[in-house]
Design a protein around this nucleic acid. Structure first.
Lengths: 141, 141
DNA sequence: TTACAAATGAGAATGATTAGCATTAGCAAC
DNA sequence: GTTGCTAATGCTAATCATTCTCATTTGTAA
């Protein structure tokens, strides 16, 4: 229930929609949610927020550093709670399962590659698209 | 002028729009082009192709393995000639400059990370967003 | 040259995301 | 507690990249 405090310290006014969205991510049932996902889930739990508001809130949360935004292959963006430690993602092309991982060597070599070419790394995104090895994979549809 | 042969061996009928698009990429003036870019350039050189056709052709070329498609941060996709050797990209957030690089260690560690978690890598995308170190960077706008 | 399937072009349709604007709700000062 | 003001919300319409539809045109093989 300290969502209120989180919002305040992020410099955001504490409003109903923002609290709802934040709680949803903190509930931890799904780490990776698209705007549409959030919208649906809130409606399902009887909370009446507009889709436009969901988009706005998600983006504000990203600016504020509460959430991180990802662009997995395809169209829609996906958000997840920012818990400090950076990590990359493996996405199953079959069932959509997302697994996170961190590899210090990869991080290091990236910085090196950039530096060698006259760039100062600001950010990076690494997505591995793969197939779950059966039987882990529940082929979707 | 062997674009014709390339199309044939890719199993594609040799048509005007396809030849034009392929030549454009082979001319090598810009390695990374969006559909819009291609469309504009063709119009500029007096070749009258429809935007829808450009999209179709680019996607067919991707299927055929002639081009590779990338999703740099933001909206539109970007295509580049597939010249066999895989590589990743560094994109300057300021001026848009794109540099390519390949790091065997990174590739290896990715495969390893995936395998350890029960995935068979199908594909991956790694984009480093950075800032050119001055004075290389011609700050855009 | 003919004939037919495949390709093209123009514009409508789609899907995700954002903008505009009237209405409502936090919140600080009475 | 009220009051009042600004920021936030919720619609809906707009945008932007991309895809679809379908009538027309173009390769190509016979």
């Amino acid at each position: 229930m300290n969502e209120l405090i989180q919002l305040k310290s992020a410099g955001l006014k504490s409003t109903l929609p923002r609290l709802k969205v934040l709680s949803l991510f903190e509930s931890g049932n799904d780490r990776h949610l698209s705007a549409e996902d959030v919208y649906r889930k809130l409606l399902a739990s009887g909370d009446d927020v507009g889709l436009a508001t969901v988009y706005r809130v998600l983006n504000q949360f990203e600016q504020a550093g509460l959430l991180v935004k990802h662009h997995f292959e395809g169209d829609k963006s996906v958000f997840e709670l920012n818990q400090g430690e950076h990590h990359d993602h493996i996405v199953c092309l079959q069932c959509g399962r997302v697994e996170e991982f961190y590899d210090a060597t990869i991080e290091l070599r990236q910085k090196k590659a950039a530096a060698e070419r006259g760039f100062a790394v600001h950010d990076h995104s690494l997505y591995i698209y793969a197939n779950c090895i059966k039987p882990k994979c529940q082929y979707k549809s």
